[in-house]
Design a protein around this nucleic acid. Structure first.
Lengths: 216, 216
DNA sequence: AACAGATTTTACCTGCGAGTAACATTACTC
DNA sequence: GAGTAATGTTACTCGCAGGTAAAATCTGTT
């Protein structure tokens, strides 16, 4: 027997537990997820999970925060502030679809877990989602902190409008995640292009304060 | 004591149970929903629910189907086939946002219940959602069954493209549901206008086969 | 070798909620 | 008003999963 060393340092075990938990929560949903199964997948017995992570709720919140952190990082990696708004949006959406394609479980834990839970969990999930939404809102609105010049043809968006566009984008992107599964030959870039086709011109109109009106 | 008649015919009680169940499922999510509470809200004791509706799963599926039926009806009521594509989309979206504003619990049961459940439930929910998605796809694509003339500037969409647009729209609309709660002065018509502003031109481009390309 | 502290497990308690058996009551029919 | 079918309730069983006490085993230190 080569390496029988089952004993591992706490930091490593904790990460294994969180990874296993993300898998199980993603597959089964919060309530149907069984702590014992999470422990098994992490190669450990149940009391270890409680010793290191506290409770099932704490464990879930740790997962949510971990996933949110990674997605935020991916977004900020791609959507560099020195790009034009159009390029930033393009890169941001690409980052999103790439993330979902690469780590579907993580996206699942973040967003497909809409069932109402206890107030503690609901608050944690809401916080994580608000963070993502804030990232996207910044992506959509020209951020003054970046010193990015607003192109002459695009006026600044109000917060309200930016939040509207951000919510619509996140919702559409989330939903398109399923569409991607139906058409496996469509990669992240292709889906991004389609979505840009669909929304970019209209976003320009919204920026410019134009509002669609019913014909006739 | 005026009317002590607690006894009610089965059809009425069943409907009361389903209404109560929609409420509770919407508030708590499937797993956290407690059958006893549903029974109480329906003014009845637990075994009645099992006698009339079968099991918790059956009850939930009955709720899902009921909600789907009503939403489909609302969509078809507004999006008359004799309208132009633009008007139909406008009316369809208006119907949707009106429905969500009027019956948030029903929408909740249909879509905010993404957690993975047992295969029976998952299948039922998937079926209901596919129905809605099909309705929207028909709304987006010019439906040959209606004999609707395709305007000269808009070519027929392929199924793939129509499904893409439909998914994006449903996802955006779903997500904008939350946005509406943050801005209570925005009614269904106003939200519909904003969404039309954002997507209508782009949808035309997608129809015409134009695809956005990264600048530079 | 002996001790300390971290890692890990076995074996349990506990509450809660789905589902049911048996019994009670009202209303309808002839 | 006797019989019967529908409507309704009380009071249970049972299994499952979250959480824990107590003990065991490993690893490093002096």
């Amino acid at each position: 027997m080569s390496q029988r060393s089952k004993r591992l340092p706490r930091a490593v075990r904790e990460q294994q537990m969180i990874d296993a938990a993300i898998q199980v929560f993603s597959e089964r949903g919060y309530h149907s997820a069984i702590v014992t199964e999470i422990a098994e997948r992490a190669g450990v017995s149940k009391p270890m999970v409680y010793l290191y992570l506290g409770s099932k709720e704490d464990l879930f919140l740790a997962c949510v925060r971990s996933c949110a952190r990674e997605l935020t990082a991916a977004l900020q990696e791609y959507a560099r502030p020195e790009l034009t708004p159009e390029q930033r949006l393009w890169q941001g959406l690409t980052a999103f679809f790439t993330f979902v394609a690469d780590y579907p479980e993580r996206w699942n834990v973040l967003y497909q877990q809409a069932a109402k839970h206890g107030s503690t969990i609901a608050a944690g999930v809401a916080e994580a989602r608000d963070q993502i939404l804030l990232d996207v809102t910044r992506l959509v609105r020209d951020d003054p902190a970046t010193g990015q010049q607003t192109p002459p043809d695009r006026t600044r968006m109000s917060d309200k409008e930016a939040e509207f566009v951000a919510r619509a984008l996140v919702g559409a992107a989330d939903s398109l995640t399923d569409w991607m599964r139906s058409y496996p030959d469509e990669g992240p870039e292709q889906v991004t292009r389609r979505l840009m086709t669909m929304v970019w011109v209209g976003m320009g109109n919204a920026h410019a304060g134009q509002i669609w009106s019913p014909p006739g």
